[in-house]
Design a binder for these strands. Structure first.
Lengths: 341, 341
DNA sequence: CTGAAAGCGCTTACAG
DNA sequence: CTGAAAGCGCTTACAG
């Protein structure tokens, strides 16, 4: 029976001896139906194996229970945590996640926003504050809650949740200097189409300049998100600037790759070279020596983004446009200990 | 204009001076429309900011471009790679991913299958071959392509893509023995509601028994997916069975956590203790000493799953029900080298 | 507490 | 090459 064409509300209604609208009521407002009727309908749903057709329901009610989300990539715990935060919060509220991966391409992001919007989601979550103008117009015109994530330094289209990449990097550089660093290199993710990465280097540069240290392009490198790149860029940096006494990496994966490279080369960390990362992935605390890094709240970003959308949908007008989840400097063993501050 | 109610096909039609059906044609069969007309419609789409309403389109055509997917969790590169494989392949074909995370709960999986099916996806991907009976009936009754993943040891509902967890673990144990191991411990993920984990221990047990080594429960531990658990269970194992000369971990995260613990405790790897993992995450090759492990094709599982569904949807009847992507034993530095085989 | 009617925004044959 | 009609499976007021 269900093989060819799945049961419709009408089929359930016939089995239960009621009208389709009563079946709809049992599903959405069970208390508005007489007990006996409800029981009969529920039984009919069971026997027919009825699974409500939400695409019809969505068209009729003009609302879906779908939330769209766009991340650069899923591979790397970084955004994976945010996605888990989203699915956990959304799932509990009966919403579902329509996910897209942009591959760090703004053009692809625009394309995906269009595709997602075609599904008429109740809300949408994107990564970063940087988008193509076309994407921004689409988002504004959609008339749904929009949450940008992972960045609070800028003007959100609607709402944003994250932290200041600039301030976080600035703070880490200050800490490194307080611990004795005098020549700090920086290796970060490519800044093209990535405002978070751009603001991280900017934070580094600003802090270095402010503290009167050398701020030279020869101290700054870009590397893709991989352990191998961390090792490679460390070699490059050491080759050009053997005088660095600390290297700050824009993410933990790069930092850890560099740390392993030091172990291979016999470079003592932090005695010969201090290393700091960014993200505080689980590995950072587990490796020996444990990595000094910046802790940010990846899972919470996802959860909060979901909450902000859901609140809006409930008509809550008190939801703030900007939620700064902050960051923490976590000093572990790859940077020198000692009284600073 | 778009703020309150977004443009409809009818609005575009009016602006272009044609009927709605012509707008639909321009979108779906552009070659069946006169050049001049097409240009006018395209311009009208642009000026109205029209984004097609696929929920209406799906209801009318009785087909969506949505593929559902269920994974245990996204946090851990393990399933993240599979998700990237899915979004990459799906995105290129104009399909979108509706994602759910079960948290390793079969009951939650059933609930999510129901919710996803309500969106009338064109196909669905689930993890593993183990499901609640209710989930299986739902999946069978849906009348859409279903791909189970990460396991080929069993009877798929429809199609499956992955590898033999049993054989892979069996093979690794054989290799460890060939390298001189005589007392092998095993630490794997909890086997409850996880057929892959269950078949991994089973593979270990079968190999150990077949090779005439000790197969004792005192050699087998379970640990959650974390570096900390790997370290903890290694300590437990060493406390009960200080005579083990090798430990095989059911995933790389556990293995790596144990490796770091060895480094902290001054246990030499592989001289004092050999360590092997499972998954071949990027870190396995990057860490020092590099981890011996089983390479499996996580990204390909996602890509193939998407392809199998898409082929079916295209009416291809030659698509195999079972795709075994295999595995490879990758020997690196945490197990003794030497001529074996 | 329950039902008949209209309509959501598209697509699918079918005409012409 | 283009359009009028019907219908997809629901929900939303509105009656009673």
């Amino acid at each position: 029976m269900d093989q060819h064409s799945p049961a419709r509300m009408e089929d359930v209604a016939q089995v239960a001896g009621v009208s389709a609208i009563t079946v709809s009521r049992v599903i959405h407002h069970p208390d508005k139906v007489a007990d006996a009727t409800r029981e009969r309908v529920l039984k009919a749903i069971e026997t027919t194996g009825y699974v409500p057709n939400r695409v019809a329901g969505s068209l009729a009610s003009n609302q879906t229970r779908i939330i769209g989300a766009l991340v650069p990539t899923v591979t790397n715990s970084i955004f994976a945590d945010t996605i888990d935060g989203l699915t956990d919060e959304l799932g509990a509220q009966g919403y579902q996640l329509l996910l897209g991966a942009t591959g760090y391409s703004l053009a692809e992001e625009t394309r995906l926003i269009n595709a997602i919007l075609a599904q008429r989601p109740a809300g949408i979550v994107v990564t970063g504050l940087q988008h193509e103008p076309a994407a921004e117009s689409l988002l504004r015109a959609a008339g749904i809650p929009v949450v940008e994530t992972w960045n609070v330094d800028g003007q959100p289209i609607d709402m944003t949740v994250g932290f200041s990449n600039f301030n976080a990097c600035h703070a880490m550089v200050e800490r490194l200097v307080a611990r004795g660093a005098r020549c700090i290199g920086y290796v970060g993710a490519p800044t093209l189409a990535n405002d978070r990465a751009a603001q991280r280097v900017a934070g580094y540069r600003a802090a270095v300049a402010k503290l009167g240290l050398e701020a030279s392009d020869s101290l700054v490198f870009e590397g893709k998100f991989s352990f191998a790149a961390g090792a490679g860029r460390l070699r490059d940096l050491l080759a050009t600037r053997p005088d660095v006494d600390a290297v700050f990496f824009g993410n933990d994966i790069l930092a850890l790759g560099a740390l392993f490279e030091c172990q291979r080369q016999g470079i003592r960390v932090p005695a010969d070279l201090a290393i700091a990362g960014f993200d505080d992935v689980e590995l950072a605390a587990s490796v020996a020596p444990a990595l000094t890094t910046v802790r940010i709240h990846r899972y919470e970003i996802g959860r909060q983004a979901a909450r902000m959308i859901l609140e809006r949908l409930r008509g809550d007008t008190t939801t703030p446009d900007l939620t700064d989840l902050g960051f923490e400097i976590i000093e572990r063993e790859t940077t020198p200990a000692g009284r600073a501050d």
